[in-house]
């Protein structure tokens, strides 16, 4: 009967691994300027799924050590669970599309959902690595096992975070404030034609007085491939309008001749610095990464 009961060492291993894995998820849930996930319900959902992921990673080693090989197949549950996390995030964000100032777009939503899925893998890998280290070291002094498990977990988290860190628009393009001008009810930003939809005096005077504009110029010709992607521009517009709010009108335009992209709208808060910052920090979507410089990544961080 006693052989069926899990040993103290394994209990400690599971607890340490679950704690490290859950910690990894806590550290990767960040509420930054994008205000997502929303506090506190979004936090809780992600922390609980992170805990479950960590638990799945933590019990794999004890299961193997007790010759319970079939039990390891529950890792497939983890895969299913994480796919569900991605699906739930995607559905949730799509439901919000009509309620936002401008839409995120499918490409951006896909990127966010994939990130949430990947971060659950962080929790699983960190807890699994932590448990594996404790098993391999197998010192008679339990404190050594615990400390080495925790250290391995955090090293793994550091490497995974750096590896999965994406680039932003600021890495491949210059973003500067644009000068708005109106000629015969046509809107121009830095002399580039944007729209003729401001036909009424109210619209043109509102835009002239309160409008704000940013010009994104690719650092190199080949980065136009990324910047010209519709989903990428939609993501930049979304981040810009969410940061400053949107009173009325939003237009985007790309200039064929030099690849510049114009983003202009009437914000609630007129702050050019925040606009530039929001656009610069917009992540490059995975689906737009079509050249080697943007695609390349390494284990120690950005190039």
């Amino acid at each position: 009967m006693k052989t069926d009961i899990i040993s103290t060492e394994h209990i400690i291993m599971i607890i340490v691994a679950i704690s490290t894995g859950t910690c990894a998820r806590i550290l990767t849930v960040k509420e930054d300027f994008r205000q997502y996930p929303s506090y506190p319900n979004g936090y809780l959902t992600n922390l609980v799924t992170g805990f479950v992921a960590a638990a799945l990673g933590a019990v794999a080693i004890p299961a193997l050590m007790t010759k319970n090989f079939i039990a390891v197949t529950f890792l497939t549950l983890a895969i299913q669970q994480f796919r569900d996390v991605r699906k739930a995030e995607r559905e949730s964000l799509k439901d919000l599309e009509d309620a936002e100032y401008t839409s995120r777009g499918n490409a951006y939503i896909d990127g966010i959902a994939k990130t949430f899925e990947a971060r659950n893998y962080f929790a699983l890998i960190v807890s699994f690595g932590s448990a594996l280290t404790m098993q391999l070291i197998n010192s008679k002094i339990m404190a050594i096992n615990i400390v080495s498990g925790i250290i391995t977990g955090f090293i793994l988290l550091f490497v995974l975070k750096r590896f999965s860190k994406g680039k932003t628009i600021g890495d491949i393009a210059e973003v500067e404030s644009g000068i708005i001008s109106l000629k015969n009810n046509d809107l121009y930003v830095n002399g580039i034609y944007v729209t003729n939809l401001l036909g009424s005096d109210d619209a043109s005077s509102l835009f002239q007085k309160e409008g704000i504009a940013a010009v994104i110029s690719p650092n190199e010709e080949r980065f136009r491939i990324t910047l010209d992607h519709f989903g990428q521009q939609q993501a930049a517009l979304f981040e810009a309008t969410r940061t400053l709010g949107l009173k009325r009108y939003h237009y985007t335009r790309k200039d064929f001749e030099n690849g510049k992209v114009i983003i202009t709208f009437v914000p609630i808060l007129k702050d050019a610095d925040r606009l530039i910052e929001a656009i610069k920090k917009t992540p490059l979507l995975e689906s737009t990464k079509k050249n080697k410089d943007v695609l390349s990544t390494n284990f120690v961080g950005r190039n």
Partner: peptide, 8 residues
């Protein structure tokens, strides 16, 4: 010369 993003 420019084009509104997002196709037509």
């Amino acid at each position: 010369m420019g084009q509104e993003i997002g196709g037509i």
